[in-house]
Computed example of a mutant assay.
Amino acid sequence: MRFGLKVNPAGWDEAAHWAGVAEAAGFDCLWTGDNLRHPRDPEIPVLDGPTVVTGWAATTSRIRVGLLVANLVFRHPTVLAKQAATMDQVSGGRFDFGIGSGLWPSDHSMAGVPMWTPRERTDRLAEFVAIVDRLLSGDVTDHSGAYYPYSLASMSPEAVRQPPLIVAANGPRALAVVAAHADGWATFPGAASEDEFYEESVRRNQSLDELLDGRAIRRILLAYGAINPWESQHGFAALVNRFARVGFDEIVVYAPKAHELQVFDQVVARLDDYR
């Protein structure tokens, strides 16, 4: 089992603090999101995701750094692919690249984009991910797709290595995008309870197995929402064991709040025991 720490910092001091904690504790990856504002409370400050990752890339030495997930509501695939190559350059090949379709109305409002239907959202995700995959592999030929046409693209300088591409997906058509293009799959409970999400995870892992036809990819659980990783040390161990049985090989936890620090410290002191 691999472990990631996700932080949505309000300022660089907070971002730098958690980067130091994550690297010292032995987390495998340090993640941040990609929202122009906090989805529920606009008074909560949120830094720009790609900029935070670039800062982490320049100031850490071991830990992988990444976006979970880059939000295609206000990104164009040619721009985002260039940013990904830059973040990988700065990190020396330690960048992990998550992409998601963006669900929050506030994302659409800030970008001046009407809310997409579920079908359009998945169609856009499929075209977007295919473009990014193609560009990062070095293919810069013109594209005339339905949503993201472009010409004269450039990917010079290239990434140190092609960043692992991780797609957030829940529905059958989005899981097909994962199978077609991704090196990893990410999912989270959303509004579901932990038990409901567990049952859905069983079905989604089985569906993904059928689509992948034997190809192995990373399977990442975002442990927040209905899942509380910092309730107790025993609860953390139970969480790891429960979702490992489903097929997940990576768990991403959120940075603890002040009242959760005691359990966090207990868990990270024994992080290797949970692998």
Rank of each mutant, 00 (worst) to 15 (best):
V268Y: 15
V113F: 06
D273T: 14
N8K: 00
N228C: 00
E200V: 08
G4C: 06
A126W: 00
V129D: 09
F3T: 07
H181F: 14
M155D: 11
E127R: 01
G171V: 03
V113P: 02
N71R: 05
I217F: 06
Y147C: 03
R218P: 00
A159W: 10
S101R: 14
H17N: 08
A111N: 03
A182E: 12
F95Y: 12
R37K: 01
L212R: 08
V177F: 15
P50D: 13
G92N: 09
P39V: 06
K82I: 03
A269T: 12
L68F: 14
H234F: 12
V167K: 11
G33Q: 10
Q83G: 01
V178H: 11
G145F: 06
R215D: 04
K257D: 11
L222I: 01
L222E: 07
P45H: 08
F197C: 10
G247K: 00
E231R: 13
E196R: 10
V268A: 13
G55Q: 12
N8S: 04
S61Q: 15
E250M: 05
G112F: 06
T86L: 06
S201E: 13
V53S: 12
D107C: 01
L5R: 09
R218W: 03
T54L: 13
A24H: 13
D48Y: 15
P39F: 09
A84P: 07
V167G: 14
W31T: 05
D213N: 13
G171Q: 09
D13K: 08
F197Q: 12
E200N: 12
F128C: 05
S101C: 08
I99N: 07
T78L: 15
G171K: 03
I227E: 09
A244P: 00
D139R: 08
V178N: 11
T141N: 13
V202F: 04
R119C: 01
L165Q: 11
R94C: 02
T86Q: 04
A85P: 10
E250A: 02
T78C: 15
R121P: 02
A19G: 08
G145E: 10
D48E: 14
G145V: 12
I227V: 13
F248G: 00
A255E: 10
A111Y: 04
A179R: 04
V178E: 11
V7P: 13
F128G: 06
A58G: 15
E231T: 13
G100A: 10
L175Y: 10
G55T: 08
D142T: 10
A16E: 14
G4Y: 11
L68K: 07
Q162D: 07
L208A: 01
V65Q: 06
Y224P: 00
R2T: 05
V21H: 04
G4Q: 07
S106K: 07
P189W: 02
L212C: 08
E210C: 00
I44R: 14
D272Y: 07
D195W: 05
L208V: 02
R37P: 00
S106G: 01
D96M: 10
Y224H: 09
P256R: 02
V246Y: 04
P50G: 11
W12D: 05
A223K: 03
Y150H: 15
L103C: 01
Q262F: 03
D96E: 14
L239E: 08
G26S: 07
A223C: 05
S193D: 12
G92S: 09
G145H: 10
V7A: 10
V46E: 06
W185M: 04
L36I: 00
H108S: 08
N8I: 05
E158G: 14
E199I: 03
S193Y: 03
R173A: 04
H108E: 02
A10N: 01
Y224N: 07
